[in-house]
Design a protein around this nucleic acid. Sequence first.
DNA 1: AAGTAAGCGAGACGGTACGTCTTGTCTTTAA
DNA 2: TTAAAGACAAGACGTACCGTCTCGCTTACTT
Lengths: 196, 196, 196, 196
Amino acid sequence: MTSTPNPQRRSEKSHRATLAAAMDLCSEHGYGNVTVEAIAARAGVSKKTIYRWWPTKGAVVLEAMVGIAGDATQFPDTGDITADLCTQMTAVLDHVMTGPRAAVYAGIIAETQHDAALARDLRTQLLAPRIAAARDRLLVARAHGQLAADADVDMAVDLLYGPLYYRLLLHLGTYSHDRLRSHIERVLSAFAPSAA
Amino acid sequence: MTSTPNPQRRSEKSHRATLAAAMDLCSEHGYGNVTVEAIAARAGVSKKTIYRWWPTKGAVVLEAMVGIAGDATQFPDTGDITADLCTQMTAVLDHVMTGPRAAVYAGIIAETQHDAALARDLRTQLLAPRIAAARDRLLVARAHGQLAADADVDMAVDLLYGPLYYRLLLHLGTYSHDRLRSHIERVLSAFAPSAA
Amino acid sequence: MTSTPNPQRRSEKSHRATLAAAMDLCSEHGYGNVTVEAIAARAGVSKKTIYRWWPTKGAVVLEAMVGIAGDATQFPDTGDITADLCTQMTAVLDHVMTGPRAAVYAGIIAETQHDAALARDLRTQLLAPRIAAARDRLLVARAHGQLAADADVDMAVDLLYGPLYYRLLLHLGTYSHDRLRSHIERVLSAFAPSAA
Amino acid sequence: MTSTPNPQRRSEKSHRATLAAAMDLCSEHGYGNVTVEAIAARAGVSKKTIYRWWPTKGAVVLEAMVGIAGDATQFPDTGDITADLCTQMTAVLDHVMTGPRAAVYAGIIAETQHDAALARDLRTQLLAPRIAAARDRLLVARAHGQLAADADVDMAVDLLYGPLYYRLLLHLGTYSHDRLRSHIERVLSAFAPSAA
DNA sequence: AAGTAAGCGAGACGGTACGTCTTGTCTTTAA
DNA sequence: TTAAAGACAAGACGTACCGTCTCGCTTACTT
């Protein structure tokens, strides 16, 4: 168990104000230019309160990010694997890889490069569930014969999402919706069932 | 052009000592835990001297990284596109995405998320030449009929390298050499010439 | 009048525990290193309870000090002014200017330098009664012809007690019992009746 | 030797600005309401610079106080011990026990009650030299037959200065110049040579 | 005896200052 | 004239207490 104080007595108001302030400030000034002091001031919250509930700025912003990305990036299952991937990945693109939030998300990922605990939280809270969901959806598609029976779904996931993060984090430009669709179709073609 | 002083009078000894100290310290303590002060102290160089020749810590480490990665990741052309990609990408994997240097490289990429100038330098000095080389090699392969005549080589580059960075920067584990080979073969298969 | 709550419902147990904890902690760690939080924790009392009954830490410690010093420093009247001064001043020396209590007492006096209310309470509750008692005893002595008829008893009080506090608060060392007796005799000699 | 950095490289400008800011702020707001942050801000100096050269706020203010009191409270020797004591003690009264500086001086003395190093510095830099000077002056007077041959000059010093500090620190009111003269005369009378 | 108002322990809160740290600039010293 | 050494202004860090506050619980007055 952790040394976190009693969460039942936590002020929900301060909690929400902190997350909102963190997202606002990051969007306005960029993740790297935001300080815990500034978040506290903007939220009308004391620094102590922030440090009571989160270990670092990164953890605050990650929680805010999870809240935002959470609902928006669920995986649908309409039976059409191509359409479903387009739906979900377009949502990812639009919600966290475009506009001011792209920089925030990239900032958090940057932070994980020297904060192992944050890296773990990013993985468990944000990435792993979505990777698992993508994998499951692909397994369903494979079971339905939409992919080759021996298709390596882990590799498919890497090929689908890898380029998005690669282009985001190396500043190579984001895919347009059309380009994203071509990308998805190309990857799926690599795992298509052999012509019967 | 910048206000950099006359480079002819630059002390090559201090230059080299700085780069070496930067790489050593980053390897030992991780990019994020290294300070300019520490680099100066280790190199036996004054902070002023570092700031005279580089704008930030990131620029120092990037130059060191370019020096190390430079030679190792050239693109061969043996005529066999699969083999050549394996050769080059394995070198990339081994030189900058494995061991202590992985953290250093990831650290620099992290820094570029809030340092636009460094992002530019990373792209122009490190990434762009290698992307161009990969692209050229694939064009040659396509011209030789090893890829489909209408293969989109830009997309191929994204699919080849994207997953490597994705796994590095999101802490999802690095490919083994075998896995890398499978990965390359799978991508190339997506661009294979249609059976005639 | 203040907004102090109903004293009839006050928990005598908490009251005593607080005063005891305050004195203990001050003796152990020195007045300046004791916090209200620590007093509350040691006493098993909530901070709120302390602030309900006292305005500041100084007020708590002052009350504890008054309780301790109260009985011990009464003024006797045996008819021998020198002996009575020795008796009372030795008691003062031993009870509040020696050992761990010296630091506590000095700590309270220090606090009064930036807490006017505490300064007032120190004067009215601790000092004024004893100064008045000394003055009265000297007036009796003067009436009995043991001091000059025109002896300035206020000045005598200053000369008697001033050096004790001076040495305490400026860290110049405390008088021994013998030295104290010499001191008293010397002061009284300055106010002796002129030889007839 | 201490761990203080090289004093030759010290910025005299920052040094002076810090001392001046400390005295100004203490005079304006009272010793206890002044923070190191405020001193730094007023002086246009970084906190780091203050902590580089002084261990605590008290040490800064003490140095400022020593500078102010230093010249003003020298001991004259006109041959008339009463007049010389009046001169010096009146200067003390006027310079450090009256007006805003009284509170500053009392504040430092208060601080010494929980800062042993500051207590030592107060004694060695401010008190001891003046006590020694007073003692020396009294010894000269005794040698000249203005005091009894066996007069205890240490006790005389205690009796002369004790009441001044006692009244300052216990908030009992400061002596007027006239009252101070009476006080001095009364003390000297206690050590007068016996009538021949 | 039941109802109710208060004091109580606990501890989260907004706030302020702490003393430390690192950045990037500027000054001094010695070669 | 250059570079080492390192002091400097600036400002964020994470911590410690302050004095206030809100919670349930207990206790003891009131009706």
